[in-house]
Design a protein around this nucleic acid. Structure first.
Lengths: 145, 145
DNA sequence: CCGTACTGGTTGCAGAGTACAACTCACGCC
DNA sequence: GGCGTGAGTTGTACTCTGCAACCAGTACGG
């Protein structure tokens, strides 16, 4: 396989994955959309981050994030607190309920993903995970695929 | 890194990727949405496949595929021909225009993906591509992530 | 101090993608 | 012929999304 072919394959397979992701999200956890799940997951790792950070990280419009966060807050899954140092900024935090839901969903997702990765060797798993992290960590301008 | 951690990372990173994919598709080729691009790409490899095949492959509702295909046909990118053996079935084919557009978009996507993969060794590229193929090829019931 | 530029966030609006359900048409089997 | 099944379409409703306009708070230059 040539490098160019590999690039093309990566591009294609990533796209296939992306196309399926939403559907599986709906099946796996109807109570939490793919977006909501992703945002909650991000908050778990970056507690107290700002809405703008989310928008930048996921290449979303700030209005979209605003609405999603508002929905999550209505559902009682996140809390918004004003930054005492800058009154424009809202610091986002997972609520206890949000943490609980996120945990449940993560378990079911891990089960589904784990099922399909069951046959993989541990070495392959770790390398695959490393590749994905490396791919997504790329800081450049075209962040999606 | 443990296997469970690797699974979790894979799940998370794939989700991050999925979240960004649509946005980047819009930036990279506004004239062809992620869906359209994916469907066209599938047709390129499986010329003459049926709408139902697309629905199954991408975990989409058949009505969604029907509308997407209709749009692609209106745009002159695909052609629908009746299967002479079964008048229920429509066989889908790329038109010349569809092939051309797909080629252009593939080039621009490959450039973007290639840019972010530029620093990767050829061995890593091939292994990454292989992992993605392997992941997506899993035939089981929960196909997304 | 005041005005201007900038940043974080919200709201109005419009469009794409999607699912579900109900329907039509064609096939296959009894 | 009649019934169940599969492919595809259409009606409907909902979510996600971006863009543009806007408000509120901050930072900087006079």
């Amino acid at each position: 396989m040539e490098a160019a072919t590999a690039v093309e394959t990566i591009q294609r397979e990533m796209t296939v994955f992306a196309r399926r992701a939403r559907a599986s999200a709906g099946r796996l956890h109807p109570e939490l959309s793919l977006v909501s799940y992703t945002l909650l997951g991000h908050l778990e790792e970056h507690d107290g981050c700002r809405a703008t950070d989310l928008a930048a990280h996921y290449a979303l419009d700030k209005s979209t994030v605003s609405r999603q966060v508002a929905a999550l807050e209505r559902a009682g899954l996140v809390e918004r607190r004003q930054d005492p140092e800058d009154h424009r900024v809202q610091l986002l935090h997972l609520s206890a309920a949000g943490r609980r839901i996120l945990g449940q969903v993560t378990v079911s997702r891990r089960a589904a993903v784990g099922e399909r990765l069951a046959e993989w060797s541990r070495e392959d798993l770790e390398r695959f995970a490393g590749y994905l992290v490396r791919y997504n960590a790329w800081p450049g301008p075209s962040e999606g695929s």
